[in-house]
Write a protein that binds this DNA or RNA. Structure first.
Length: 458
RNA sequence: GGCCCGGUGGCAGAGUGGCCAUGCAGAGGACUGCAAAUCCUCGUACGUCGGUUCGAUUCCGGCCCGGGCCUCCA
């Protein structure tokens, strides 16, 4: 199976060739943990979870290393701690827990490694020392700055020239910078602020250095795939590249750079600063299912912008009802899931999840139409195989259809169904319909079929 | 200002130089005591103006519209 990936570095789709097929290495920029993750934060997690699943399928689960960091030191975290009086560690531990819960609800596999920035400060300091020694960084007023003009081909990923950056500079340039584009590797901390001892005094790392330190330590100086949101191309990834390449003297940091498009609200980027976001947590609290949110996220190609709306999640839920409805009828049939070539090819073509989903829809039709055990078995095998690659349909069908909601107990529902069947037997259809309507009013839908009556929650 | 993306049927959303996406919603039919679910059928979609071509939604150029990055941001 040939995997094609759109590489931001070249702005074109390329055949994916791992450095070492026995250890395919991927790094995704993870969250800064100071608040709940919003849907926009969840998109790269879900999108690149599909990539992770694909790589595991193609190269074997033991031959892929997926690292996703947790940024647990940052000015926003410090600000939150200052505001509430809660300790930084308490904030980050709690918030990271929320993050894990929410991402699990979205069906995202945990990464193989989840490094935390605070555990890598010595590696960051070492990296900074290397950069200074090689003339790519300098100390100024207790800061250490990366000397951008020292790097020949800075700006390759974002396609920006130094001149552009000076012309477009919208921020006041700190006086100690030699060049306006120079960025911070290390900055001083006040006595009352969190900090680490370093050759440059008590301080803390700049934003970009942690990813260079962690990816280098865990995945090596050059690894296969680096991914994240499209807004990270500049400056974050550009600066990571500068740091890692200049420190290690390598021609590239990662071979393939993947970037997901934004989640939008009414056509505009969802972001904390705009305030137009909703969190995964609140959607789950409202009763939306994590899997429906995941399907909504996968229904557009990962590089395209996507509007996530409650209506969209409701539609995704309706689609899942159809899938699970078909699976419920063959729940007892044991299969060994295997994707069809079509589904696999779609996902291997730069993660074309909408196309893969359309194949899944055709497979569920095939399953519904199957007239004998063999056909059913094949259809179920293929449907679940494809769904597995997308991280969907992992739940027990009956549980999906019947759980959630509130109020009425299962035993009561079943008693009413029995009463209705009795009424039907005596052709007392008025009573049968009354029971059905009463249940419907409580969100319980009945479906009669040759086997009897089944029920599900609306 | 510099650099990037997009504009597909009521909605969501793939894709392709000539023929079908797919789903949701809607209409009709089969099935059903009636429903629901399921299956079948249906709706003359490709921002705009030019160019290339036997033929363009698909390639090229202009224009219009929307979005993004250049500052923390997935």
């Amino acid at each position: 199976m040939t995997i094609h990936l759109y590489n931001t570095l070249l702005r074109e789709k390329q055949v994916f060739q791992p450095i070492d097929p026995l250890n395919v290495r991927i790094y995704v920029c993870g969250p800064t943990v100071y608040d709940y993750a919003h849907i926009g934060n969840a998109r790269p997690v879900v999108a690149f979870d599909v990539l992770y699943r694909l790589l595991r399928h193609v190269y074997g689960p033991d031959h892929v290393t997926y690292a996703r960091n947790i940024t647990d030191i940052d000015d926003k975290i410090m600000a939150a701690a200052e505001k509430t009086g809660e300790s930084i560690e308490s904030i980050t531990t709690r918030t990271a827990g929320w993050y894990h819960d929410d991402m699990a609800a979205l069906g995202a596999l945990p990464p193989d490694r989840e490094p935390r920035a605070t555990a890598y400060v010595p590696q960051m300091i070492r990296l900074i020392e290397q950069l200074i020694a090689k003339g790519f960084a300098y100390e100024a007023e207790r800061h250490v700055l990366f000397n951008v003009p020292a790097m020949q081909d800075y700006g390759k990923l974002s396609r920006r020239s130094l001149d552009d950056m000076i012309a477009g500079a919208r921020v006041d340039v700190a006086p100690y910078k030699k060049h306006p584009a120079d960025f911070t590797l290390w900055k001083p901390s006040a006595d009352n602020q969190i900090g680490w001892d370093s050759p440059w005094g008590k301080g803390r790392p700049g934003w970009h250095i942690e990813c260079s330190a962690m990816s280098g330590d865990i995945l090596g100086e050059v690894f296969d795939i680096h991914a994240g949101g499209i807004d990270l191309i500049f400056p974050h990834h550009e600066n990571e590249i500068a740091q890692s390449r200049c420190a290690h003297g390598t021609p590239v940091m990662a071979n393939y750079w993947l970037h997901n498009g934004f989640v939008q609200v009414n056509g505009q980027k969802m972001s904390k600063s705009l305030g137009n976001f909703f969190t995964v947590h609140e959607l789950l609290e409202e009763g939306f299912r994590g899997e429906a949110i995941r399907l909504a996220l996968l229904s557009a190609h990962y590089r395209q912008p996507i509007d996530i709306t409650r209506e969209g999640i409701i539609e995704a839920k309706a689609q899942l009802d159809r899938f699970y409805g078909a699976l419920a009828k063959v729940a007892d049939m044991a299969v060994d899931p295997a994707p069809t070539d079509h589904v696999l090819a779609a996902i291997a073509d730069d993660l074309n999840t909408p196309l893969a989903l359309s194949e899944l829809h055709e497979l569920v039709t095939k399953l519904n139409k199957a007239t004998n055990e063999t056909e059913k078995k094949v259809a179920k095998t293929e449907l679940l195989g494809g769904a597995q690659l997308l991280g969907l349909l992992w739940q027990d069908p009956a549980k999906w259809l019947q759980s959630g909601g509130s109020g009425i107990e299962t035993a009561e529902i079943e008693a009413l169904i029995a009463a209705r069947l009795a009424a039907k037997k005596t052709k007392n259809f008025a009573e049968a319909d009354r029971i059905r309507n009463d249940l419907a009013a409580k969100g319980i839908l009945l479906e009669d079929n040759s086997m009897g009556t089944t029920w599900r929650r609306a």
